[in-house]
Design a protein around this nucleic acid. Structure first.
Lengths: 212, 212
DNA sequence: TCGTCTTTCTGACGCGCCGTCAGATCGCGT
DNA sequence: ACGCGATCTGACGGCGCGTCAGAAAGACGA
């Protein structure tokens, strides 16, 4: 652990510098939450962190580098979610585990939405570095889900027309956007719990092949 | 039709001005495709359109306004998709219509992804204008899908745990990201047709309640 | 306590884009 | 050919970017 953090000039940084770097990251996250990427400015970040603009460039080559660092931090919180997916759901009783997974994913998304939105944007626009960050973040979950589909297919519960990995990706896509439509749903009078229940049902049915 | 287009100062614009405006929109779209939002600059747009920077501001109050105009244009191409959803799929034979819908949606997304990505980003970040644009674009489809779920529930094919509108939103979310994971899928060796088949199956099963 | 060396921070600068305004240019109607 | 509304533009002040040389802050031995 205690990764050897580097400054942009390549030198290993000490304790004080690490603290400064972290203050900059904190400020970046806060402003990203408040203003969104499009209005994110390094001057504002350094103002918020109480340092000079030049300091920012000592630790990050540009804004992207800082956002990427935040993305990497988010990955750590995604990994534990895989626990909900193994062993594979196989009986109707496993619906509880599906519900727990949906809840946990929602919480994860809620904690990190500001960063995840940007990471996904960059990945979709073809940025290789961000794409690889997303892949690294999602691959564990994707693989588990794909395995669940395969298991379900072997048991004859899941339609053989499903490509396991594509189905997993479809479910991730659905979850990734769990909150994208939240306001529309709220306005239509759909409660949060109805939304959660709906996602659970679709997920369970698709991955496990059993309609609750 | 032939909307009365306005300049930023409120006057109705004539033929020549409309052409200029359109040239600016075309350039905006092209650069949006090529560089993404984050690197989109009005100087570049006007350079590409062969006019002075000031001209841009004659027709759009800022970059957002131009992107919004592009979003509105995309809506027209989304509306026809509703035809695939009515009347509601009710028999196993309707799977063909589901497949056609998935294809059509994919094509629609392909034509407009650059704009749609930005529209969704803005909507997710709380921009009211863009959120309303997205709602207007999606509401027809969402309503139809929700109706299909209700019909399926009444026929006892679809789990009653599904909230019709939330399920529709989940399917839209999944489709919205049809291409977000495309590269990951391609790299894993999942063919385009397998992906299409998978989406069709999930969509059909969720909305219609029949596993193909 | 002091001097020196290393680490870390910063003020200031040149550059390029933003958004605005006053005035130039266009082209239609007569 | 002239006049006038419609349309376009060059130029400008302001601001954020990213860089660099050097200042400040600690660490450490004497």
């Amino acid at each position: 652990m205690a990764e050897e953090l580097l400054a942009t000039d390549g030198r290993v940084i000490g304790e004080r510098a690490t603290a400064s770097r972290q203050r900059l990251l904190d400020a970046t996250l806060e402003l990203l939450r408040r203003d969104g990427v499009l209005d994110l400015k390094v001057v504002d970040i350094t103002r918020a962190a109480g340092s000079a603009p030049a300091t920012f460039y000592q630790y990050f080559s540009d804004l992207d580098a800082a956002i990427l660092a935040l993305s990497e931090a988010a990955i750590d919180d995604e990994k534990p979610l895989v626990e909900f997916l193994q062993p594979a759901w196989s009986t109707a009783a496993d619906i509880e585990r599906a519900r727990a997974f949906v809840d946990a994913y929602g919480e994860y998304w809620n904690d990190h939405y500001a960063v995840l939105i940007v990471r996904n944007l960059k990945a979709e626009q073809g940025d290789v570095v961000f794409r690889s960050a997303r892949t690294r973040a999602n691959l564990l979950l994707l693989r588990r889900m794909a395995d669940m589909v395969t298991v379900g297919q072997e048991a004859g519960r899941v339609p053989s027309g499903l490509d396991p990995f594509a189905a997993a990706a479809a479910m991730m896509a659905m979850l990734d956007r769990l909150f994208a439509y939240q306001n529309e749903l709220r306005r239509r009078g759909t409660s949060k719990s109805a939304q959660r229940e709906t996602l659970t049902t679709i997920l369970f049915q698709t991955l496990c092949g059993i309609a609750p």
